[in-house]
Amino acid sequence: MPGQRQRATGAGEELSPVVADAVAQAGFELEELQVQQAGRKQLVKVVVDGEHGIGLDEVAEVSRAVSAVLDQRDEVLLGAYTLEVTSPGLDRPLTKPRHWRRARLRKVAVRLAGDDGGEKLAARVGDADSDGVELLVDGQLRRVGYAEIEHAVIEVEFKEPPAAEIATLNHEEGSR
């Protein structure tokens, strides 16, 4: 079976540009494409996202667009395939500025780059731009460049964030 896995990897590499184009034409971005053997069929997993996320109706639209381009490239998949189009999970690392913008006011766990394993921060996300993000760490605002961040993920919260933290991140007068 090792040959089939290699073929699937090659298929993913060959299909990536056409799948990315189909996803982009639907107004989204291809986050990940996996092609692997699943019994007698290929499993094509497409993870898509957008500036403001992606809803179920939009996933269906992207699925139809990707299916159409895959059907035109039947020689790459060598037969039947199962298509799975999904959005990234909540546990997806924050790696792009748009991930940080969408996480605004959310609680995050951040590990900064460093020789000693890096400083670990529990923070709340403020404004983000193309170079970095403002984090609220222990009640203090701290600007962190993306290049300084080794790993970051959203932390699940089951209650509303403290009003004082939100006010600080919204730069409201009297919150400090």
Rank of each mutant, 00 (worst) to 15 (best):
A11L: 12
H151Q: 11
Q140K: 08
G3L: 15
E172W: 11
S87H: 00
Q72D: 05
V18D: 04
A20R: 13
L78M: 04
P97Y: 14
R101E: 13
P93H: 06
E61I: 09
V48L: 11
R92D: 09
L112I: 09
E58P: 00
L136M: 02
V18L: 15
D91G: 08
S175L: 02
A60I: 08
K107Y: 03
M1P: 11
L105H: 13
I54W: 06
L136G: 01
L43H: 10
V133D: 03
E134P: 10
G12K: 12
G117H: 12
F28Q: 04
L135W: 09
S63I: 02
Y146D: 07
A167Q: 14
S16L: 07
A164R: 10
L135Y: 06
D57Y: 01
A103S: 03
A8Q: 03
P97V: 01
L141V: 05
D74Q: 01
G79W: 04
K45E: 03
L135C: 04
R40T: 15
G55C: 13
A152N: 00
A152P: 00
H151K: 12
R102A: 07
A26C: 11
T82D: 14
H151L: 02
Q25P: 12
T95G: 01
S16Y: 10
D71R: 09
V19N: 02
E51N: 12
A123R: 10
A103T: 00
R5I: 12
D91P: 09
S63L: 04
I54A: 02
L83H: 01
P17C: 06
A122E: 15
G145L: 05
V35R: 01
R124N: 01
E84S: 09
G114A: 04
R104H: 06
P88W: 13
E119D: 07
F28G: 04
Q4L: 09
D127S: 15
R64S: 08
D115K: 11
E119H: 11
G79E: 04
G139F: 15
